[in-house]
Amino acid sequence: MNAFRYAQARDAASAMAALAADPRARYIAGGTNVVDLMKEGVERPSLLVDITQLPLRGIDRTATGVRVGALALMSDVADHPAIARDYPVVAQALLASASPQLRNMATIGGNLMQRTRCAYFRDVSQHCNKRAPGTGCAAISGVNRRHAVVGGSEQCICTHASDLAVALLSVDAIVHVRGRAGERTVPLERFHVLPGSTPQRETVLEHGDLITAVELPASAAARNSYYLKVRDRASYEFALVSVAAALNVAGGRIRAARVALGGVAPTPWRAHAAEAALLGRPATGGTFAAAAEAATRGMKGYGQNDFKIVLVRRAVNRALQHVGAIA
């Protein structure tokens, strides 16, 4: 780990000012991602601004849903009765994440900011456009079993590691951000950006922007939601493929549908084609199978990860059967 300075922020403004004054400064909260990457030499901050004392831990019901403070711990959010009842997909994704210890450390805001597990990104001896722009993407013709089958580019085919973000995508979560120009909101779907030709850029945040909260709008679909995580090991592993499905079925017809995928793209991935194949249709096995097929549209494997495309189809179908009460 490189040498760095450390400051504990008592308030958001001074934390943001500290980052504004130093382009190599970074926030630290749970530390589970940034400390890990610092040990690998991937992150080399000059200054760590400890934001854990900022009053952003609350999990509060609002008129329209639930507002989760950015510093709320993953375990606390998973345990919150309103989350478990109104957003089961979120609670399930959290409990399928990492380990109990890590969930006691990691925060909701930090989880959205976590960086890819791509082995080439983590290994500073290897070529990686995200870590060292212009060096090439070694994963495209390398060890890529865990890599993206959609949303990548010739510059980067990494996968986003978060379970939570996939679940949040399926409930139309909104990220609250405090920046130089004040507060703003960003729908989660527009929060992460695809690598394109700039894989080093992962979110819409500017340096120094601070996530303050994530807002979860209440909906009938969110209440009827489910997270399916497929992995080699029974626990404590990142997803090979995951599916967050939320469905509102009334009178046998699908009134609202959200399908989000994890482990398949450089960002949490919204399967719009699958949703379109569901909306307005009867909640039947045939509909779900067609939607599962649609979810794989445009997916492309790179060898070791070819299987993910079949797995996506199967997993989406399974998740839809679960929320569609066909099982």
Binding site: A3, F4, R5, Y6, A7, Q8, A9, R10, D11, A13, S14, A15, A17, A18, A21, L47, V49
Partner: peptide, 12 residues
């Protein structure tokens, strides 16, 4: 506090 600059420690 917005008028203040955060005091930092380290790297030593």
């Amino acid at each position: 506090a917005s008028v203040s600059v955060l005091p930092a420690s380290g790297p030593g």
